[in-house]
């Protein structure tokens, strides 16, 4: 009797959420794997044709898709480097003993709160007008021009804006890490005659490994999945030069109406993201230093 009551409470507490979760996340995920083996245009009246692994084979020969994959990898690698470098620099600056450090921290975090879509539009104007203006005034027209119109620079513009968005976010993670380093350790190193740079490389960096794990994980997965900024800043252009993975999937399914093929891409997308993030967490966890 008591046991029955216990199970009853268990169900009352957990079933509502788990039911919604199953319906919204798990079921579509499973159906999605099924769809990936069919050729279908998404119109209910039209037949779904089973074509085995054809969709996945076709992926390997799809120039647009391969280019998009390469661009996404390039974007993610560049972004992970810049976001973490800038974020760590910010964190070191605002954990110094300066009086205005708190104010600066508040300001630097601000962009993250404004959604990616809106950030993209803001920067569209900055590249269009402010960059060209700075170019005119300073004469540095080879650096300051509208990056968004240039097939090579448009991707850098995405990296730039993504860094602007995420630097403040990873800064918060690094701040937590830096504040967790005991002052005595740094002090002891100073007394032993370690220079500022040595103290940073030999003490701060190793002790920040947990913060690196988290930040790398976050920037890797956010970078790989970028969509909103991509949509509003470049829209994939010019000439598909910035059509990244997530956008390629969206366009394949809802733009070209290739539901089955697009879904196969979406499954590959999931496998890649899972593989990258799990490997990365595994590797950096091993390097963490026990205090």
């Amino acid at each position: 009797m008591a046991n029955r009551k216990k199970i009853g409470w268990y169900l009352i507490f957990t079933v509502p959420l788990l039911l919604i979760f199953t319906l919204i996340v798990l079921v579509p995920f499973v159906i999605g794997i099924y769809y990936a083996f069919f050729q279908w245009d998404g119109i209910g009246a039209n037949p779904m044709v089973f074509n085995g692994l054809d969709n996945f084979v076709r992926l390997m020969e799809d120039e647009r898709f391969l280019r998009s994959t390469w661009l996404t990898v390039l974007f993610t690698v560049l972004s992970v480097i810049t976001v973490n470098a800038v974020g760590l620099a910010f964190a070191l600056l605002v954990t110094s003993k300066l009086k205005l450090a708190n104010l600066a921290r508040t300001m630097l975090f601000m962009p993250y709160l404004i959604g990616g879509l809106i950030l993209g539009y803001i920067w569209q104007f900055v590249f269009l007008d402010v960059f060209t203006l700075i170019g005119d005034v300073t004469g540095l027209e080879s650096i300051f021009f509208n990056w968004l119109n240039n097939e090579d620079f448009a991707l850098f513009a995405l990296v730039f804006v993504f860094t602007w968005q995420m630097a403040g976010y990873v800064m918060i993670v690094y701040i937590a890490g830096i504040q967790g380093i005991p002052g005595e350790v740094i002090e002891a190193a100073r007394i032993d005659g370690a220079s500022g740079w040595q103290r940073f490389l030999r003490i701060t960096v190793p002790l920040l490994m947990p913060a690196f794990t988290i930040s790398l994980f976050l920037t890797l997965s956010y970078g790989f999945k970028i969509y909103d900024v991509n949509l509003s800043l470049t829209g994939g252009g010019p000439a598909n030069a910035t059509e990244l993975f997530a956008m390629n999937i969206y366009n394949e399914i809802f733009g070209y109406g290739n539901y089955g093929y697009g879904q196969a891409k979406a499954i590959v997308f999931f496998v890649i993201i899972a593989a990258i993030t799990l490997t990365q967490v595994y590797i950096t966890k091993k390097k963490e230093v026990e205090m």
């Binding site: 579509p28 995920f29 999605g32 999945k225 697009g262 979406a266 997308f269 993201i273 993030t277 799990l278």
Partner: peptide, 12 residues
């Protein structure tokens, strides 16, 4: 499931 990107389940 936190590893599943939205794009993977949006169509189904």
């Amino acid at each position: 499931t936190m590893l599943i990107p939205f794009q993977t389940i949006m169509m189904p």
